[in-house]
Design a protein around this nucleic acid. Sequence first.
DNA 1: ATGGTGGGTACCCCA
Length: 265
Amino acid sequence: MPFTIATWNINSVRLRIGLVEQFLGAHAPDVLCLQETKTLDDAFPRKALEAAGYAHIAIAGQKGYHGVAIASKHPFKTVERDDWCAMGDARHLRVSFEDDLIVDNFYVPAGGDEPDPAINPKFAHKLKFLRELAQWGDRRRRSDTRAIMVGDLNVAPHEHDVWNHKQLLKIVSHTPVETDLLGQVFAAHDWVDAVRHFVPLRQKLYSWWSYRAADWDAADRGRRLDHVWVTPALKDGLVSTSTLREARGWDRPSDHVPVLVTLER
DNA sequence: ATGGTGGGTACCCCA
């Protein structure tokens, strides 16, 4: 049975629940992982997702900032939430399914504007979060573990994950210290980039375009900040991927678009 | 070199 997972930084799930419903109606992933839900759990639009066929919902919210959620057509076996950098932020959820498939959903700190941890505490926090992720990856996992890691990792790791590699080297999300650290996270578990598995590294691909550009589509100054990684046990089952650029042009859009991966589980 | 827009919240935080 093919299984489709989607990840989407929604930038307020309450404001954009209509877009979420539209997306689910059109693409019907088995599992949708959201970031930046920006709402307390009590105010999460649970009923709308249930009505769309997603009866199983895991939420980690906080007031105003951050917040992640996982909505699923299939029941969870376990739901866990880790605290990263001992900040108490709602930036992570892990669920498993009856067949022991694991899904981790992350919202990595954006890191502010100044890429210097000595003067920018937000950037220091981001680097610490990525170092913890690399350590987390060090935990020994069985070679047959079937796990998927998704989320807004707020790092565009490769040259063609940004519109201008040379110019972005000084910009938070594409600085060498960040891309090196994300590389360590990636290597720690022998992850497979399920999107780049299908889209060659030489081809530009973005999942985020700033709200500040006058014409995001024409300027096309995007970055690929949203990722879907799988363990080697799932690699041979990878079927397809899509990054829904058109969603950036929807009415009152998120600045991120959904990224989907289909695989045989 | 600068400032641009869009969330949340409560007059300022964050992306």
